[in-house]
Design a binder for these strands. Structure first.
Length: 646
RNA sequence: GCCGUUGUAGCUCAGUGGUAGAGCACUUCCUUGGUAAGGAAGAGGUCAAGGGUUCAAUUCCCUUUAACGGCUCCA
């Protein structure tokens, strides 16, 4: 007999070899029907795998993340079975479950054949048929030799490659129906639990994520234990699409693009430009207060400067090709730092000048790969909230922390809560290739940055191989409405460029000393930041950012003059106000203004005109009642000045 | 850059081997209406661009281009 401890602390006795599923049945049939997997002493197991020793047991259902992940991984196997029946001879690579976006994929080599989106419907149908057969997922342990022999006979180079990384004794196979796969598991008890299937897309994916390798076919899908849950999931995706900045950008006339101008080149319309100017106002105020000085630099520079900076060898491919002039090559700048270094270097510096902080909303051009362009989030012309801080080693920690604090201050203003701070480190194996070859400096500065992060008390993750070529950095990661990850803001250390540009200052001992440089962009780029804000606010921008803040809606054109006089009064107080002078009924005017997400609507008619008042309506909230014009004006000005997010 | 999908009016989208349609938006007229769509008429398109097949191509084929879903990349 073995002792099984349940999460509530109860200990039950069972025969050795009892499975989690058996245990569930002993508790209730209803529970047993819902069990997807089991956590056995903290490890996720098949629910039908025999337990032969005392253990802590937690039954995993759809309510557990691990239960869902097991469900989707098993669904990937089910899909593979369906694919194999329709494309005999197909070879599979890996098919993991995904937490975000929810579901799974399987990478496969279809040989000469092609799968198109038309095949997905047939595959779904096949998967549903196979699921209904209610086949068990059967686990089998094999020796490495047996496994190698099996896949050698099958001629499956992909699974052989996987095997080469596995040790004898840890190799398991799973079989359901006619499909057998090398897999560490675990799996759900049987295919019958999969009640609803949606294959979402088909895509190419390089084998092992390396573009030099063959491209495999990747099919994405998601499954649920009921049709209802699938429907809800699909409805949620539809909702998310409504927040997509590309949709909102069009609806709210924020930006546009033109084939004649070129891909990835944003044309900011008047509404978008208002947002840009408000953001710049915020940045300039904040930076002035933090001791930054502003500079302005040109859009181009000679090749030699980018050779000095070290950018060209790393990034030539993603810069626009050079223009030749007077026998010189000029590049559009892809970053502002070299220009700023030249400003630092223009006059001799002493320790008394340090830290030296210069800021610019710099316009940069990057030749991003065509397949990478994505609305406002990934573009070829970007306006960076850039600044460079040149400081002594002693000043570094304090300066770096001040930058971090600036991020947090901004995030508070915008109510940004869902983000991850990522400490991006170098990869020692790529020193001299992807990273400047200064092993000690890397470790030293990485440690400094880590300490600052710990001091700030912000949770962060560390990622090897994500650093810039000149030093470690902190990236702030966010997710777009449709779940794609982006770096919103960045705070970087640079110990390399001050050397390559021979930058120095005179220290207190009258000796030349090399400064450390901090590159920072807390508001990222206008493009990405505004794209993010549109999604973050679902288009309902706070008053201070709203392109049109107040719309005055006369009940009929009898009150047009009064509406105009109210609007003029607001404009004099720098409130962005407009009058809806169309010959429409008030209901129509309200509807259209609501859809344009204008924060305040002022309805004016007979009553308001005679009393010199306005009927205030807040977007999304409805009628707020009648107020004096002066009172409304004062309230709006206060809300604007405080940059309230509501 | 690679794999896949798509491109029809300002927007959202139907449709067809015989030179195009809806709703919204727009213009004009009627209506002067009190908190999410009043009515009528009108105007608006080289069907992404180029080439091919065909008596005839927006429709079929090829190339280019752009956008979208991924992969790779991201100073």
């Amino acid at each position: 007999m073995i002792n099984i401890t349940l999460p509530d602390g109860a200990v039950r006795q069972y025969e050795s070899g009892t499975s989690a599923l058996d245990i569930a049945k002993s508790i209730s049939e209803g529970l047993a029907r819902k069990v997807l997997a089991a956590s056995v002493d903290g490890q996720v197991w098949d629910a039908n795998r025999p337990i032969t020793a005392d253990a802590n047991l937690k039954l995993l259902t759809w309510n557990d993340t691990d239960g869902q992940m097991t469900f989707w991984h098993s669904s990937a196997h089910l899909m593979a079975e369906a694919v194999e029946s329709m494309f005999p001879g197909v070879k599979f690579w890996v098919g993991p479950a995904l937490e975000s976006p929810k579901g799974f994929y399987y990478d496969m080599d279809l040989g000469d054949r092609k799968m198109t989106e038309d095949d997905l419907a047939a595959l779904e149908k096949k998967m549903n048929e196979l699921a209904k057969q209610n086949s068990s997922y059967v686990r089998k342990e094999l020796s490495k030799a047996e496994a190698v022999q099996y896949f050698t006979e099958k001629g499956d180079e992909y699974k052989l490659d996987l095997l080469s990384g596995l040790a004898d004794g840890e190799i398991t196979f799973y079989t359901q129906g006619n499909f057998t796969d090398l897999c560490r598991g675990p799996h759900i008890p049987n295919t019958g639990l999969i009640k609803a299937v949606k294959l979402t897309s088909i895509a190419g994916a390089y084998w092992k994520g390396d573009e030099k390798n063959k491209q495999l076919t990747r099919v994405y899908g998601v499954t649920f234990p009921s049709q209802k849950e699938l429907d809800e999931h699909l409805a949620m995706l539809e909702e998310a699409k409504k927040r997509d900045h590309r949709k909102l950008g069009k609806e709210l006339s924020i930006y546009t693009m033109s084939d004649d101008v070129g891909p990835g080149l944003i044309l900011w319309m008047p509404n978008g430009t208002v947002i840009i100017e408000e953001l710049e106002k915020l940045a300039k105020e904040t930076e002035l207060e933090a001791g930054y000085k502003r500079v302005v630099t040109p859009h181009i520079a000679k090749e030699s400067m980018y050779l000095t900076s070290g950018h060209l060898p790393y990034y030539a491919d993603s810069m626009f090709p050079p223009m030749e002039m007077d026998g010189e090559k000029y590049y559009l700048k892809a970053m502002n730092c070299p220009h700023h270094h030249k400003i630092f270097d223009a006059e001799p510096k002493s320790y008394r000048d340090m830290p030296y902080r210069i800021a610019e909303y710099g316009t940069c051009y990057r030749y991003e790969q065509s397949g990478e362009l994505f609305g406002l989030m990934r573009v070829r012309c970007l306006h960076m909230n850039d600044a460079h801080i040149y400081c002594t080693k002693e000043q570094f920690a304090q300066e770096f922390k001040a930058v971090n604090d600036m991020y947090l201050k901004y995030f508070k203003i915008f109510g940004i809560e869902k983000y991850v701070m990522r400490l991006s480190l170098h990869d020692p194996e790529k020193l001299g290739q992807k990273y400047v070859n200064e092993p000690e400096l890397w470790l030293e500065t990485e440690d400094l940055v880590r300490k600052v992060l710990i001091e700030t008390g912000v949770p962060f993750v560390e990622v090897k191989g994500e650093g810039a070529f000149y030093g470690p950095k902190i990236d702030v990661q966010i997710w777009s409405a449709i779940g794609r990850e982006f770096t919103l803001a960045t705070n970087q250390v640079d110990f390399a460029q001050s050397r390559s540009f021979k930058l120095s200052f005179t220290n207190q001992n009258n000796e030349p000393e090399i400064p450390l440089i901090i590159h920072r962009a807390p508001l990222g780029t206008h493009e990405r930041f505004i794209g993010f804000l549109l999604e973050h606010y679902a288009g309902k921008l706070p008053l201070w950012l709203a392109p049109v803040q107040v719309k005055v809606l006369p009940i009929s054109d009898k009150f047009l003059d009064y509406a105009k006089s109210v609007s003029d009064k607001l404009k004099k107080a720098d409130i962005r106000s407009e009058v809806d002078d169309r010959n429409e009924k008030i209901g129509k005017k309200i509807r259209d203004t609501e859809l344009l997400k204008v924060p305040y609507m002022l309805v004016v008619g007979e009553k308001e005109m005679t009393e010199n008042k306005v009927a205030v309506r807040r977007q999304g909230k409805g009628d707020l009642g009648v107020k004096d014009v002066e009172q409304f004006l004062n309230e709006v000005v206060a809300e604007m000045k405080e940059r309230r997010s509501e």
